[in-house]
């Protein structure tokens, strides 16, 4: 698992992908910080984290598009699956590498909070709640998009599938309003990433929301492992 984690981290920063992903998130974080915190002279980061929700939704598929599909296309899955490493360790190693790059990218919010602290009082418990929410959102979304990447050998298709999933998650609240109460309504309501994420931006740390994101991540990691295992039986 460690070997795969190290290789994937190195792959992110041997190519432009890791740098571009971090740079894009730094840009959006900096821009929103400037427009909401600096112009409004506030140390409240709620607006910044609310606005980062769609940014993360549409950036994560770029981060994960090559994770599994690249191995399938270049046949390096043969090297991995014939080594004494279990499929779950392969999946976990890749997942943790993407999560680390994601954390590195959202670390900019922490840097900005520290800088803000020099000039004003930052509500740190609230900020940590925000940060945890964004981390959990990223963790769940990376697992979903990684699973989608395992379904194809084309990185472009993997990215498109990821964007579609993100778009679906983004409009899920609107869909909830469109359907009458019943199974679909309940499904959309309970699976809404936005509804689960919002309480974090209000400073509410609800354990059920934490468990929701952790469960989504665990479920899709399990599915990705199954997809990898399935290749041995196909």
């Amino acid at each position: 698992m460690t070997a795969i984690f190290k290789r994937e981290i190195s792959a992110y920063f041997h190519s432009a992908l890791g740098f571009v992903f971090c740079a894009a998130l730094y840009f959006f974080t900096g821009y929103y910080f400037l427009t909401y915190n600096i112009y409004n002279a506030t140390a409240d980061f709620s607006s910044l984290f609310t606005l980062l929700f769609p940014v993360v939704l549409f950036m994560v598929p770029i981060l994960t598009m090559r994770l599994m599909s690249e191995d399938k296309q270049s046949k390096t899955d043969q090297v991995l699956l014939t080594s004494p490493v279990s499929p779950f360790s392969i999946v976990l190693g890749k997942y943790l590498s993407a999560l680390c790059v994601f954390l590195l990218a959202i670390l900019m919010t922490l840097v900005l909070a520290v800088v803000t602290e020099v000039f004003a009082r930052v509500d740190w418990p609230l900020f940590i709640g925000h940060f945890l929410g964004l981390t959990l959102l990223g963790a769940a979304l990376i697992a979903v998009c990684m699973f989608l990447s395992s379904l194809t050998e084309s990185q472009v298709i993997a990215a498109l599938l990821g964007f579609t999933a993100s778009l679906f998650l983004f409009i899920m609240d609107a869909l909830t309003a469109m359907v009458s109460k019943g199974f679909l309504y309940n499904l959309f309501y309970y699976l809404s990433f936005s509804k689960r994420y919002q309480p974090f931006t209000y400073g509410i740390l609800d354990l059920s929301n934490v468990l929701f994101f952790v469960s989504i991540a665990a479920f899709f990691l399990f599915l990705t492992t199954l997809t990898l295992e399935k290749r041995r039986w196909s």
Binding site: R7, A11, H14, S15, S74, K75, T76, Q78, V79, T82, S83, P84
Partner: peptide, 16 residues
Amino acid sequence: KRHIGYLPEQPAFYGG
């Protein structure tokens, strides 16, 4: 698998 060295038909490696 720990005892096996495998050379696949199509060389597979990370080009980068």
